[in-house]
Design a protein around this nucleic acid. Structure first.
Lengths: 188, 188
DNA sequence: CGCGCGATTGAGTAATTTCAAATCTAGTGG
DNA sequence: CCACTAGATTTGAAATTACTCAATCGCGCG
């Protein structure tokens, strides 16, 4: 059930069985249904979620009600409203489920306790955040340097499995183009 | 000379004078002239730079020679090619100076030694990377949800001091619009 | 079988780019 | 101090790209 998480951590730091048990003990298993809202704008953000099975998305909804998708998270990915989670402020993003989803939930308090108790976990989170940072920088480069068509094909190439599980209209939102434009790109 | 760096670190973790001396000892002071190239695509990336005085930018240059600016870094900011630096691979970005610049250079080896010797520095870097990640997420949101005009005015509001020190054509590159479009926005 | 959501298509409009030319400006050497 | 030049900025006009609004299509689910 949690082999992937262990493997992910062990890409950075090796763990004994006991250590991994300790790590797991700080998480709380949570179950969500398709369409369920996990975090709503204005909420307190109690957890960072590691996705065991399923699919969530995080997005910003502007005053006119238009949704802009910041992230999809499927198996072995993490998702939260990072600013609200780390600064313990109110959420500006919304997080919901595109499928029935099982996640391991880690509170900020538990994250800090865990890092204190098991110093190498601090290295793991640090490395993970750095990798995520690099990913965002690449996405920014893509947004400022590529056309809508190039961005779409790049996404297809990078995450071929993702597109099958997501309505095209959401792919459009993630790429920063209208559904109609994406539809015209997809057939070309 | 290095009061700002100490203050930046102490926003996350308190330091004694001795500890800060230790921190500083891992950095190497470097001087660069305006227009000097600090990192060239294909180079090894030996350092992450903390800017003491001056201004650098990092950018990607596509095969046709068009430049896309990922980051500006002025006093009290950090800059490197993060992927090449952390994975010790060849640079895909270019970094150069828009002004004469003094920087504190930290090698990956020294960063790791420092974190090992002074555990709280790992917390500092971790926190810093998280904050930077949040910043990039905001920039992505801005890119997918705002018009060129909104992005420009947002930049003016967020970093009012930056614009005076940077050619408008580079602001355009950073925002992902053509110089001509930015010029028309700026006068409006 | 029909409802409803998502996807597609069409037409008109708005925003942005490109290419080209003109203008402005800062730094250099005389 | 002035003239000159290279780079940066602005402006204009045409072409492209993407958006909006509206209508239609397709299909899975109840």
């Amino acid at each position: 059930m949690s082999i992937e998480l262990r493997q992910q951590i062990e890409k950075t730091v090796p763990l004994t069985n006991e250590e991994f048990e300790l790590v797991l003990s700080y998480f709380k298993e949570k179950h969500f249904k398709k369409h369920q809202i996990v975090i709503h704008e204005g909420d307190h953000v109690p957890y960072n979620f590691y996705i065991v099975k399923g699919l969530m998305k995080s997005s910003y909804i502007n005053p006119e009600g238009k949704e802009y998708i910041l992230q999809f998270a499927l198996e072995d990915w993490w998702i939260t409203d990072p600013e609200a989670f780390h600064n313990q402020t109110k959420a500006t993003l919304n997080i919901d489920c595109l499928e029935d989803t099982t996640a391991f939930a880690l509170s900020l308090e538990n994250k800090e306790r865990l890092c204190k108790e098991l110093k190498k976990m601090e290295s793991f989170f640090s490395k993970k955040t750095t990798e995520d940072y690099i990913g965002l920088q690449k996405r920014i480069l893509c947004l400022i340097s590529s056309t809508a068509a190039e961005r779409y094909h790049n996404l297809l190439k990078e995450y071929p499995g993702l597109i099958q599980r997501i309505p095209k209209s959401m792919v459009a939102s993630y790429l920063g183009v209208s559904r109609e434009t994406l539809s015209r790109l997809a057939t070309a």
